[in-house]
Write a protein that binds this DNA or RNA. Structure first.
Length: 210
DNA sequence: GCGACAG
DNA sequence: ATCTTGTCGC
């Protein structure tokens, strides 16, 4: 793994965060919704994308790719590790989703530019960040019952929601990536939670691990 | 200095 | 994320 200039990468993030646009979604345009996930094995990363047809209400397309890992996992710099894989998945997909779910944070990031926001900005795409763990953000009290949620604040501003899924101590940290509001990101995500899991991200996760 | 820290 | 045996519970 080469040496990376993290100060320079910080500057890239500072430039990208200015381009995030948290506007409302025009739902009439939405026909395809996608999800991507990446898993790792030795020197390689395997990415999977699934495309859901919102009218047929089913997954209609999916595939995987493998790529050599070129960047280490460093908290707050996850984008630089995963985006090469996700970008190839997106560009090679014969069906382009109008909304894309990513396994990671959106604006719930120290600089406001998590994986979902980063990818949403460079592709000018509606993206939603769905993370399994907290990176930043404050919450008054964790939701206690299944499918309950609580607002997450960072620097005093509402940035996303924490949703309790399933029975145990499993939560999802949902925040807008780009071109969507926190409330809409929560609302759309809720539609895909079945049996305590996000059906599209879960499918992408399983595919990437095959 | 100490604790936190997406995947 | 990944490495990993047995084990608790529906």
């Amino acid at each position: 793994m080469k040496d990376f200039n993290y100060e320079e990468l910080r500057n890239i993030q500072r430039g990208l965060v200015k381009k995030i646009n948290l506007k409302k979604v025009n739902f009439k345009r939405i026909k395809y919704i996608g999800a991507v996930d990446v898993s790792y094995k030795k020197r390689f990363a395997k990415g999977a994308i699934v495309i859901y047809d919102n009218h047929k209400e089913e997954i209609i397309y999916e595939f995987t790719i493998e790529k050599e890992i070129k960047f280490p996992y460093v908290p707050t710099f996850l984008s630089f590790r995963e985006i090469p894989v996700i970008e190839e998945l997106y560009e090679c997909s014969k069906i382009k989703p109008q909304i894309l779910f990513l396994d990671g944070q959106g604006i719930l990031h120290p600089l406001g530019i998590g994986l979902a926001s980063h990818f949403g900005v460079i592709k000018n795409l509606i993206t939603i960040g769905v993370a399994k763990k907290r990176l930043v953000g404050d919450i008054k009290k964790l939701p206690e019952r299944e499918m309950e949620y609580a607002p997450v604040y960072y620097e005093g501003v509402l940035k996303g929601y924490c949703l309790k899924i399933g029975k145990g101590k499993r939560f999802l940290w949902i925040s807008p990536g780009n071109l969507i509001t926190p409330e809409e990101a929560l609302k759309i995500t809720l539609k895909f939670i079945k049996n305590g899991r996000h059906i599209l991200l879960h499918r992408a996760d399983r595919l990437s691990k095959k």
